[in-house]
């Protein structure tokens, strides 16, 4: 049951939505699934771009 919604794909116009690492208001407005998708995309991005992470801090 836990993180069940995590696996859900977010669709936009019937197609999978490419979640921007910076997030979007639309994602936040989706609530649980939006927040999870955004955080996942962001963390993936930061993993691949560690310098950005430093800068952010």
């Amino acid at each position: 049951m836990k993180n069940k919604s995590n696996s859900k794909k977010i669709l936009y116009g019937g197609k999978p939505y490419n979640v921007p690492p910076g997030g979007s208001l639309g994602l936040l407005a989706l609530g649980n699934i939006g927040v999870r998708a955004w955080k996942e995309s962001r963390d993936n991005y930061l993993e691949k771009n560690p310098i950005q992470r430093e800068e952010k801090k």
Binding site: S5, L28, A29, L30, G31, N32, I33, G34, V35
Partner: peptide, 9 residues
Amino acid sequence: TTVHAVATE
């Protein structure tokens, strides 16, 4: 966002 995410969850 937090409140809404919790509510939807």
